[in-house]
Design a protein around this nucleic acid. Sequence first.
DNA 1: CTTATCCA
DNA 2: TGGATAAGG
Length: 341
Amino acid sequence: MGVNLSNLIHPIPIQLKDLRDKKAAIDAPNVLYQFLSIIRQRDGTLLKDSQGRITSHLAGLLYRTSHLVEHNIKPVYVYDGKPHPLKKQILEKRREVKEKATAEWQEALKIGDIEEARKKAQQTSRLTPDLIEESKHLLDTLGIPYVDSLSEGEAQASQMTQDGNVDITASQDFDSLLFGSPFLIRNLAITGKRKLPGKKKWVEIQPEKIILADVLKNHGIIHKQLVEIAILVGTDFNEGIKGIGPVNGLKLIKKYGSLDNIIATKKINQDNLENYEEVMKIFLEPKIIRDVSLRWRQIDKEATIRFLCDEHQFSLDRVKSALEKFEGFSHSLSQKKLLDF
DNA sequence: CTTATCCA
DNA sequence: TGGATAAGG
């Protein structure tokens, strides 16, 4: 998922309180997908209401958002638009992986291997149009804005950060750096210990900040060259060159200056590079909306409770205590209104 | 994922 | 009391 640039990036650990009063453009598919992957029972079953409808995405969104507003961070969720045709290939590949994982999940359940079952179940998550609509409805009742992008949500979020509509982009992926986001926050709101995938090791996780200008300066490259490194390594829109990871990609770009020059040397396998100019365009000239207006409204507690508790059987106590975290946030909104007036 | 609870 | 573990829908 997303581009692998981790070896080139040295994030700065931060705390949630460092982001107080900041506006954050959150990659909505990225968080919703995470919720669907992780908010499950021990055997991998998703949380569901009495009618069997999935609720894991709503639980995650409620608790995550309440956590953010408790720290007076202003979230805006940015959704994907139409996928670029070059993304079809990776989407198809992911679909196949999910089909395989679904079978392996059932198999693990049959032999009673609960841990394996959960692991496989996590790989089966699908973000359907229904789940997306329900998440938007919850945001509406919470008074939290969202944006429907024309293309990639990460592209839209990055532009909003560049334009100053928001202060930071939040995602687990590095793609927003390719889209030119000056500031990226990973692990927004995530704290505590996490299990390393596939291993029995636990690591401490905390929010971290990545400054695009620093990444470029550290390696002595410009933004376009970072995109070229990503294309060598492989993105959601192209496969990348076998044997080239972020470190070798950087070396090649530093040595030859550009992807064009590397290609001219004929020293690398060029089978996967036929669309590279189009991929460059996806990152450097994405389809985005320039004049977004963001409005954080007062929470509608009654509507939230109707939706989560009455329609989807959330516990009233849990929802109420999550909604209490909106108190200070709502107050600061009405204060701001008075000041504006 | 976040919150609730269990137990040293 | 706080770190590990279960539950949540």
